[in-house]
Computed example of a mutant assay.
Amino acid sequence: MPGTSMAEGLRRVAEAGPFFAVRTAEAPGEEPRAHGYVPFAELCADPGPLRARITTVAGRLGTDELRVGASLVFQGLAARLWSLALGSAVLAGTLPDLSPERLWWHPDRSAPDELWLPGPVSAADGPVSAADPGTSADRLRAAVVDGHLVPLHRAVRSVCPVSGQLLWGNAGSALFGSYRVLRDGCRARGRAEAADTASALVRELFREPPLHGTGTLAGGGFTRRSCCLYYRVPGGGLCGDCALA
């Protein structure tokens, strides 16, 4: 999106839905920590806020199985990260700087208010090119998987014993869910080229670990090879992409 600032690009990305939005505005000198936010970089060293969120989610769902809360918290955060990154790549043509030191999370809030990227918002190096989806997917993988999901995966499992394979299945499911919302929104607005770019990026992301093997892309849909444990929630049932279905 030539001539468009990263902040303006993020405002356009947010139009795709609340999961694609991130808080950027702040008063001069305003400190995210004063409002209960913590940087992602601290979650491995001090998983206390993550533990609190997992406990809260399990309680709200009416289950005493912390692994269910852990699974769904990880999936929700993965969906937010994928939405923000994939939406920026497709709709803004670049990625914001989402480094763990820059991106803040609030354990007691939900989309769109739980993520804060304090200004000034800067773009990561280089544009995302539809002509080179492999390289662009590598940049997305580095920003989301390496930068956030790998340490988050480790932090969640330090709080609660939950299958590592299950969590990566959640990451794959979260990516496809974010992609489907973005793809369908682009098509509805007559932006077929943007929808095709999203499709190419997602195919590339699923070619490499840790998402490779987490599920099957076919017929415009996704079927995962694991279960997020939502069926363990009273009245929960099975998700549409569940292996158990």
Rank of each mutant, 00 (worst) to 15 (best):
L149T: 08
L238S: 07
A143V: 07
G172F: 12
G93L: 11
A92E: 05
G221Q: 09
A21R: 04
L117I: 06
F74I: 11
L72I: 14
S199E: 15
P39N: 04
D196V: 15
V90D: 07
W104F: 11
L175W: 10
C242S: 03
A188Q: 08
G190Y: 10
W82V: 12
A142T: 15
C227G: 00
F176S: 02
D146P: 01
E30C: 03
G126T: 09
D146A: 15
E26M: 06
P96A: 06
E30I: 07
S136K: 07
V159M: 03
G221P: 02
C239M: 06
G48D: 15
F222G: 02
V159W: 01
A218G: 04
T216K: 02
V128E: 11
R12C: 12
Y231T: 03
A78Q: 01
A21E: 05
G221I: 08
G213N: 06
S136L: 07
E114M: 03
L244R: 13
G220L: 11
E114P: 00
P234S: 07
V73M: 06
T214L: 05
D108G: 09
C44G: 10
G48F: 04
L115T: 04
R109D: 00
H106D: 05
A124N: 01
L91S: 03
L175V: 12
P18W: 13
A79M: 08
A142G: 04
G17V: 10
D125G: 11
G76C: 08
S226M: 05
L211S: 00
G240E: 12
A174M: 02
L140T: 10
E208M: 07
L201D: 06
L201V: 14
G62I: 10
I54D: 04
E15W: 13
S99R: 12
T24S: 08
L140E: 11
D46R: 13
L72H: 06
V13S: 06
E208S: 13
E114K: 00
R139Y: 10
R33L: 12
L91R: 09
Y179K: 03
R225D: 09
G221N: 07
A85H: 05
G215C: 05
G59A: 15
E42P: 01
E26V: 13
R51C: 05
A79C: 13
F40N: 01
Y37K: 03
G48Q: 11
S83P: 03
P107L: 11
A171D: 08
D108H: 10
Q75D: 12
T56R: 14
